Every structure is written in C-alpha cells, then in structure tokens.
Computed example of a mutant assay.
Amino acid sequence: MKRVTLLHNPQAGDEDHFKADLIKAIEKEGYQCTYFSIKKDEQWKEHLDDIDFVVVAGGDGTVRRVVKELFQKDNLDNKITMALLPMGTANNLSKTFSINKETSFEDHVNAWKNGKQQRFDMGILKYDDSSNFFLEGAGYGVFPTLIQTMDKIDVSHLENTDEQLQLALEKLYEIIQTEEAHHYTIHADDKMYEGKYLLLEIMNIPSIGPNLMLAPAAQIDDGYLDVVLIPEKEREAFALHIRRIIHQEKTSFDFQTLRAANLKIQSTNRNMHIDDKYVTTSNGLLTIGVREHGFNFLI
C-alpha cells in the first residue's frame, strides 16, 4: 500500500473543502493517508520522508511552503514527489500541468495510478547575504507593485476566485499607467543586455500572478529560465494587452524574451518579488541560477 502525506490548506481559494472528504477519496483508491492542516499543524514538516508522495491540497502558496521546508533543511536531494489538488486562487502551477481545478478531487485522486512523474527545475537566487528560490517567477516592476496593492485590499466581498483574478488584472492595468521604469544591466550566460524596463521577469513556468501568460515557451525541466522584458516604450501596448484580457477580447503581445541558465542583474531598483512575496534588497545586485530537477510532480 502506497503511503501519502496529505497537506491541506483549508483557507485556500473560494470553496470549503472538508478533511473527511479528502481522506475518504484518497483511501478509497488504496492509499494509506496521513492528514495535516498546513495552517494549523507544524508536525507535517516531520512527515516528508519515507512516503511515496505528498498531496498538496491548496494553491501555489501552499506548494511553496512545502518546498521552502525542504530548501531550508537542504533536503532537496530527496527528490520529493508532489501531487496537486488545486484549491487556490491563481493555481499557476496546476495550470502548467493542465490540472483542472473544476475537476472533482475524487477524479484527480483516481487518475494518480496512471500518472507519471514530471521533473521540475527551480530558480535559485542570491541577494544581499541571503539565498532563496522560486517556482513560478521572480522579478521587478509592475508585479511587485501589484502584490503590494492586492495585499492591502479586502477581497472578502468577492464571490469567487474568478472575481479576485479579474480585480487583480484591473489593478495591474492601473499600475502599468504609472509604474516607474528602471534601468537594468543583465548578464545572461555569456551575453550582456541593458535598458530601461517597466517589467523584468525571470520565469520558470509560462504564467504568473492573475494567470498572465508571459513566457508561453517556458520549459520546466530544461535547465533554463526565460527572462521577459517590457521596455518603457511599450507601456501603452502592454496596457492595451491587459485591457483586452480584462474584456475577454482576442489579444497578443510580442514579449522580448531571453533564455539563460545563469543570470546576474544589477539595478537601482531595490523592490522585487519572489513568487507571490514582495522583497526589498539592499544593494540591487541579484544572482540567479537553476537547480535542475529539484523535485517531481505527479501528473
């Protein structure tokens, strides 16, 4: 009998998912299941070894919490495997694997027996005297501002996650109008680029934030990161692109993209984000590499 640890975020997303229902669905398929509420119980941190895989019932932030624990313990060589039950707001990681949130969790669990393991790279950052990682993306410009903006908004009056994503896109559109562009010097492998950019994103997966597709060609296991750049001169075109997305109109945008395994970025801009977290650096120097095949997803 395969053993799984179920890590549940009962506050993720816009539905009330019940512990008993999740456990019942998993045990019905023949798995031995140990349950933890990731919000209420820290004991889950001691139950990531000697199991077949971890089930993450939550959103992108819940996945990051699990990986953060492994990262801090320098335990990534363990090559943990995660199965996703998407219950968050954006669920960009689940969307990367075409895991549909609207599918019942019973059907997701049933599909695991025929699933395959997908290797997944991680971005590794060094700044100031700190080391960190990202699963989705990290960068400068409009997205750190969007994260700060959304953190200050009470979304309890919104009825579902679609409304939350719509609000985030509307705020992003407003931010694009006024966001200051900064000068960046980018060393990408053996090449150097510089310019004044409204957005600079280092992408590990295709989409970020409110399901905004920035790097459709991004590969999650190729040992490279996609650097997306939007110069100041493209401010109006980018804003129009976002407005068309808000109104569900047909649209496209030709993002300038670099692909590299190692990056060094220097800027006067001290404000950035790492996945969904806002971060302030002290010296504006950021070094980024790739940890190939940091862990696996069961898809």
Rank of each mutant, 00 (worst) to 15 (best):
I147L: 14
T89P: 15
T149S: 12
T178S: 08
F36P: 14
L135E: 05
F133K: 04
L198R: 01
L165G: 15
L169G: 09
D276C: 11
G88D: 11
L76S: 02
F255E: 02
P10H: 03
L240M: 08
L135M: 14
K39P: 15
L76Q: 03
Y193L: 04
S131A: 02
T251A: 14
E106T: 01
I220L: 09
Q219W: 06
Q248V: 01
T281D: 04
Q164I: 11
I51C: 09
N262A: 10
T34I: 01
M122E: 05
I124A: 04
F120W: 07
I51H: 03
Y224A: 08
I265K: 01
E174L: 12
H293R: 06
K264H: 15
K24T: 06
M122G: 05
S267A: 06
Q219I: 14
H182A: 06
L158R: 11
M203L: 10
I147R: 07
K73N: 13
A239M: 04
T280M: 14
E292S: 14
A188T: 09
Q266A: 11
I186P: 06
A215V: 08
N110G: 07
E201W: 00
R270W: 02
V55E: 06
D21T: 02
L7P: 15
F18K: 13
V67Q: 11
I176M: 01
D74L: 03
H17I: 13
T34L: 02
G209W: 00
Y173M: 04
G61D: 10
Y127A: 02
I242L: 04
S131G: 08
S252F: 03
F255Y: 10
P231W: 00
N114A: 13
V55M: 09
N110M: 03
A90W: 09
L70W: 07
P86R: 01
Y197T: 00
I299A: 12
I208L: 09
A83C: 08
I265W: 00
L85A: 08
K2I: 08
P210H: 05
N271D: 06
F18E: 11
D189T: 08
L7S: 13
S130Q: 14
T251S: 13
L7K: 10
E292G: 12
R119W: 06
A20R: 07
L214W: 00
R270N: 10
P210E: 03
S98F: 09
N114E: 13
L169A: 08
P216V: 00
P216C: 01
S104K: 02
L200E: 00
D154I: 10
K95M: 08
